Amino acid sequence: MTRYAALLRGIAPSLPNNSNARLRSVFERLGYARVASVLASGNITFESDEADVPALERTIQAALVEDLGIGGGTIVRSLGELRSLLDSDPFPGLTHGRGSYLVVTFLKDGAAPPTELPDDPDPLVRVVGFDKAARAFLAVIDNSEPGQTPDFMRWLDQTYGKDITTRTWLTVQRIVKKLEAERPSSSAGSMSP
């Protein structure tokens, strides 16, 4: 069994069909194990024997549409992929906060990776890079001016449409913490050193 996080796009917790309980019920109906939620913004952790991530994304998205009418988009990452992203420390020395909003924008599995990154598209954004293994853009956004959408975020939406979803670095850390806390303490047949 593999531990996964489903990162759902366009979740509004104030809508009844977008509540964590309703979202979890979809995953449980699909037969996934150890279903849990992280925050109220569409982050569902679960366990599955399925190794085909695009198939997981399609199955989950179809069930969200059928059960709850949610068509925003589903992106799935394994615990291993997210743990590797955290371990790579792409934001060395930076602290998430006003003026240095650390974000990760995940591409849907199978979406074409960028051939080149935009050169710091505006003064509000510093593009850190693209993590191929996690299939994610990394950026630092100056959000000290409320109400302004950085050009980089518009570029992402125009280029990838619903094939992306963005999470803060703090949210990614919380998701990994939840996934690791939910792991079985030992696997059958494994030995401790």
Rank of each mutant, 00 (worst) to 15 (best):
T168I: 14
G42H: 09
T166R: 02
Y4P: 00
T149F: 11
S88G: 11
I70D: 01
R126F: 01
A112I: 08
A134M: 03
N143S: 06
E66Y: 00
A136W: 03
P121H: 05
D67A: 07
L102K: 06
Q148H: 14
F27R: 12
F46I: 13
D151Q: 13
T165I: 06
L7D: 05
Y4C: 10
G80Q: 14
R83D: 08
P150G: 13
F152R: 06
F106W: 01
A51L: 14
V172S: 04
D87H: 12
T45N: 10
L85H: 02
L23R: 02
L7M: 15
R174W: 01
A62M: 10
S186H: 07
D163W: 05
F152Y: 12
R24M: 13
V53A: 06
L15V: 03
V128K: 06
G72H: 07
P121F: 08
E145G: 00
T115D: 11
A133H: 07
A133N: 05
R34K: 15
L170D: 10
P114F: 13
S19W: 03
R77N: 08
L102V: 07
I175E: 09
P114Q: 12
S19P: 00
F130W: 10
F130M: 12
P54N: 11
P90R: 14
S78N: 06
G110E: 11
E28P: 00
R9A: 09
K178A: 11
V35E: 14
R24G: 03
A111Y: 02
V103N: 06
S187F: 05
D131K: 03
T149A: 15
A21R: 10
S14M: 11
S100N: 14
K178F: 00
L82W: 02
N18S: 09
N20S: 09
P90Y: 12
P54H: 10
A111H: 00
R22Y: 02
T105N: 04
M191D: 08
S14L: 08
G73N: 04
E182W: 02
S88D: 13
L94Y: 07
W169K: 04
I141V: 11
D87G: 04
S190C: 06
P114H: 10
S19K: 05
E28V: 13
V35C: 09
W155E: 07
W155Q: 09
S78V: 11
L86C: 02
P113R: 08
Q148D: 14
A40W: 02
D49R: 12
Q173T: 10
M191W: 03
Q148M: 14
T105M: 02
L179E: 05
L39K: 09
S84A: 15
L30N: 12
W169C: 06
L30R: 10
V38C: 08
V35D: 12
Q61G: 08
T74D: 04
N43V: 15
L156Y: 02
P150H: 15
Q173Y: 03
G99E: 15
I164K: 03
P193V: 13
T165E: 05
A188T: 01
T45F: 05
G10Y: 11
V103R: 10
A188H: 03
G69K: 10
V65H: 01
A134W: 04
D119E: 11
S187R: 11
A33K: 15
